[in-house]
Design a protein around this nucleic acid. Structure first.
Lengths: 139, 139
DNA sequence: TCGCTATACTTGAGCCGTCAACAATGTAGC
DNA sequence: GCTACATTGTTGACGGCTCAAGTATAGCGA
């Protein structure tokens, strides 16, 4: 598990330098893109990417500033604000996905065989909060 | 891998609330305690716990303020400053280790069998930067 | 011995995330 | 319809880490 710190940092750095996106930014875009209507309540987003609500507020500030995500209000509940993926956001995600996905693939495939990857996935899956999400990195 | 974020956070929170130590604080103390003379150059410490040199400077500020670590200079090289574990630091480590180790043990043993743990350890070991260090958490 | 480059460490600025407190809205029970 | 509680989201203060730049020392080759 200790390796995770440096590994995550590595993927993050790659993403930041090549596309100006944080790993968390990337995941937000990814989750939104998969959603019906490309939108998600901030609360749900927080839960998915394991951030606090305030973390989400801060993160979305950046994505909104870049025009990748917009705010949208909810007709049936005035408390909620949706995070709505824009076309630019979608495009950005696709662009970033190319290098990110291949980076991850290289990393794991260089180290483990197919069978080992499956075994590893099976075990790690049992940890809380959907660890599989990292191998399945999108688009 | 995604689970790691919340899991680490959990162990960290446990350590902070019960002993006032960060996970990184803990690891610094642990590494120092195992070292010949209970001291380590800051550079080496940085490498071991995967932090930048400035990160180490900041982290040690806190431990020095608490009296768990002291600065010591090197006779043969005026550039280096050692981080030197004090007796209080050693005591603190032992104290914190009790709950921390059992927390980790519970977490993994509740989820995996002995054989699975070994398989997992064997695979994760191949990742860079000594991932085994986390199961082997000390003292 | 001089000058160059490498190494050890610190510092200032800034990012990213947390927590605690708060405002606004929703909902359930009476 | 009121009251009480729960849920959604934002904000201020702050912690922990990074990066870039700077200081000081070391060590090497001409």
């Amino acid at each position: 598990m200790r390796a995770h710190a440096s590994t995550t940092r590595r993927f993050n750095a790659e993403l930041v330098s090549e596309h100006g996106l944080t790993l968390n930014d990337y995941e937000v875009l990814l989750h939104l893109s998969r959603e019906e209507g490309r939108r998600l309540r901030r609360v749900d987003l927080a839960e998915r990417i394991l951030l606090t609500p305030s973390g989400i507020t801060r993160l979305l500030e950046g994505l909104e500033r870049c025009g990748y995500v917009e705010r949208a209000s909810c007709a049936s509940d005035a408390r909620v604000t949706y995070a709505q993926l824009t076309d630019e956001g979608e495009a950005k995600l696709r662009e970033a996905a190319r290098t990110h996905v291949s980076g991850i693939r290289d990393f794991f495939q260089g180290r483990f065989s197919k069978e080992e990857l499956e075994a590893l996935g099976g075990l790690l899956e049992r940890l809380p909060a959907d660890p599989a999400g990292d191998l399945d990195c999108g688009v």
